[in-house]
Design a protein around this nucleic acid. Structure first.
Lengths: 208, 208
DNA sequence: ACCTGAACACCGTTCAAGT
DNA sequence: ACCTGAACACCGTTCAAGT
């Protein structure tokens, strides 16, 4: 297998899947490729360039469904495709969602989303604002989900009960009242609720 | 100055402000404190524990305005206080916004927010969902702003024009049409728009 | 309870010399 | 254009010995 930015990025991604972003090292990637670690510098711009390459690779491999013309349905489909793709590599999610989009291939999904919004009657300026709103919401929601392994909430009932009990001991009244609910989470349902709220907000924006 | 988790976290935060999260090292913090680096292990649980401590310290020093009873005004005030506080340390924003909240002091703002929502008529379960929605939106919006130094958009008109011209060369029609708007951003206005959308969505949620 | 030498296994990166 | 020794300045962490 010859060395290329793509193979290097893919190998780095597998390393991230296995050991997390913090476990990623240039030398470990090189070991995986059975190559001298300094060789990577001929194809990638240092460690930061490697991380950019990984983020770009993930972003460019997202598969967006074709627009139907129904704004709500299209946004919903976009949101779910984005989420599903990001969560395929939860360890790398923060990377993709946090790094600025620079590569041309990463701009393709953005173009597609803007097209949907403009077709629905939003001006270019409005479409940009709505897209920023939508992306902020998706990034926030998916990010929480990605490291939900470490969060207050869990999907397990017994564990949730245990955490709720602990939360109630802190003397914070509102938190105590909601402890049972804040300790339990159904990720799918939560995401649907989030997207529905976004649709509601977008619906009320006047179009010109 | 004697060594404590708080002084260590504060010093680490200054180091992050100066050199970014990636520039943070246990040894550099120790140097700043004029202390042997291994001493830190007596007060903090390794580098990961140090990062947790920094995030907790920031979260626990947020100053929330007193609720007025007007839901929209209170949410708006909460959102702006949260944003202002997070952006005081843009280099550390990802840390605070990404790490799960564990420390009791970090739960105080959560309790306050839940109280506001429940006072407005939301059930505990609803309040939790609404808070998760709001937090996702704030996290996504603030995160983009925090590393907007590196993003497509800029606040400078000339620079924006330059980027817009470049975006238009990619052959992506919707992106080209919106290039001028996607290259320019007014962070304040964008955040207001985002919060207004959140209020709109929250308004339509039936309360019980 | 806290400090600190010694020591270990790891890093990222540059550069000059090779092919 | 790509590879790779040699080398550098840096890491995080453990542990045993000290106070």
């Amino acid at each position: 297998m010859t060395l290329s930015p793509e193979t290097i990025a893919d190998t780095a991604l597998r390393e991230i899947d296995a050991h997390g972003v913090n476990g990623l090292s240039i030398r470990a990637v090189a070991r995986r490729l059975a190559v001298d670690h300094k060789s990577l510098y001929n194809h990638v711009d240092g460690k930061d360039g490697l991380l950019d390459a990984v983020a770009g690779r993930i972003l460019s491999t997202i598969a967006l469904p074709a627009p139907t013309g129904d704004l709500d349905a299209d946004i919903r489909a976009f949101a779910h495709a984005f989420r599903a793709h990001a969560l395929r590599h939860p360890q790398a999610a923060a990377l993709v969602l946090t790094r600025p989009v620079t590569s041309p291939s990463g701009l393709v999904p953005i173009d597609a989303a803007l097209a949907v919004l403009m077709t629905a009657g939003f001006s270019p300026a409005q479409a940009v604002h709505v897209l920023r709103l939508l992306m902020a919401l998706l990034v926030g929601a998916i990010l929480r989900e990605a490291d939900s392994a470490l969060t207050l909430a869990t999907g397990d009932h017994d564990e949730a009960a245990r955490r709720a009990a602990q939360l109630s001991t802190l003397g914070l009244p509102a938190l105590s009242a909601a402890a049972a609910h804040i300790s339990m989470i159904d990720d799918e349902a939560e995401f649907d609720f989030t997207v529905a709220a976004a649709l509601e907000a977008i619906r009320t924006i006047p179009r010109s």
